[in-house]
Design a protein around this nucleic acid. Structure first.
Lengths: 214, 214
DNA sequence: TCATTGATTGACCGACCGGTCAATTCGAGT
DNA sequence: ACTCGAATTGACCGGTCGGTCAATCAATGA
């Protein structure tokens, strides 16, 4: 009986909701200020629970930090993996669409970019493991396109993926600052220019005559 | 008299040396762990002086942080500015050489990359102001090259500079991690591949026939 | 209905935080 | 030789830190 446990709000106990509220508060604060600059008392206040309750659910401050990273990363990871495995036939627009989707994802999840940057700075290994798999997946698709003659073959596929990841993520990492940069455009204008250069530079036979070569 | 004040080492007082020792310790620790995670006691121990002495020379922890950033950034800024203002005739290798020099600078000063990343995350304005000037300087040179017909003219010069800055700095920002990335190459191999794609993508007339255009 | 279990609370702990201050110690000008 | 100011020290401050603990409180199964 009492199947309708969902009817109560805030009046009764709901450990799952509590957990997720703490997680959300942790996500917001850690993304904003970084792990070291956030206090347990701050986390408690933001999530509307007691400090002890956070310890009850997550053990230590590091425990909560790990849970926050885990949750954010698994969301990111699943989304990206689905997109990468979605298409199967290599066509000339596959890379273009992949870049655009990646750019859009970061655009809609700027907090994730900040979180990953904090993780990178503290040499978090979780980050690198999952990243490695995604990059490998993307690199495989680039190699397929190269073998199909759709992309120039004289560049390392992993580097191709790395370059576009860098160009996208760094854009959002420093975006709060470059609004004062002289002549800089909007997200979309940047993406458009990047795509022009990147795609043309990757076209087969792009090693044109004006290169002084080696 | 007593002109040879340099003969004494550690025996006598040397406020300048003390200052620079504290600055160095601050640089190392802040780069490594970020501002919030470093304690005054840690800084004192690392620099071999008393905690009170740090307060005497720099006022507060923030004061030292500012001094560290100031010192690092002015070194970076002067170096980059010299290079950008050095050459004056726009030639086809100007951008290529500029990118390479920027890449080499980051390669030799990986700590600076970390420092700037910490600054970005805490929305430090010092960063953006000086960055803005450097980017504007670089963008001007790109525009000159465009007007001379050496680079494609249908892309925003500021975006061109932004893209290569991102591709270089993000590479070193995440470098500790991507050693496990499948198939990734060395610094130089990455730079080489990036230059291929970037320079060919920027060549005039790069908007080739295979683009489905718009 | 009642015992059990886990959610939740507030009081409390020792450690450490950044910062201050009065007291010393040196170096340099006179 | 004396003085004055800066460099340097260690003791000390109030406050905050992350974490613990015993005690309540509410749901749940027997």
């Amino acid at each position: 009986m009492i199947v309708f446990t969902a009817m109560n709000e805030a009046t009764t106990r709901d450990p799952d909701l509590t957990r997720s509220r703490i997680l959300q508060a942790g996500f917001e604060l850690f993304v904003d200020k970084g792990f070291a600059a956030v206090s347990m008392r701050e986390l408690a206040q933001r999530s509307g629970v007691t400090k002890s309750l956070i310890h009850h659910h997550f053990g230590t401050k590091e425990g909560l930090w790990d849970a926050v990273k885990e949750a954010a990363f698994s969301r990111y990871y699943e989304g990206q993996k689905d997109e990468l495995e979605g298409a199967d036939a290599p066509d000339s627009n596959l890379l273009r669409n992949g870049v655009i989707r990646y750019f859009r994802f970061l655009q809609e999840n700027p907090q994730v970019v900040r979180l990953f940057t904090w993780m990178h700075l503290e040499n978090d290994s979780t980050c690198s493991e999952m990243d490695a798999e995604l990059v490998a997946l993307g690199a495989r698709r680039v190699r397929e396109a190269q073998e199909a003659g759709l992309l120039r073959a004289d560049v390392n596929p992993t580097h191709v993926v790395t370059i576009f990841i860098h160009a996208c993520s760094q854009w959002f990492e420093v975006r709060p600052q470059h609004k004062n940069w002289e002549g800089i455009g909007s997200d979309d204008e940047y993406l458009e220019d990047f795509m022009k250069i990147f795609m043309d530079g990757l076209a087969p036979g792009a090693a044109g005559p004006e290169t002084d070569s080696n």
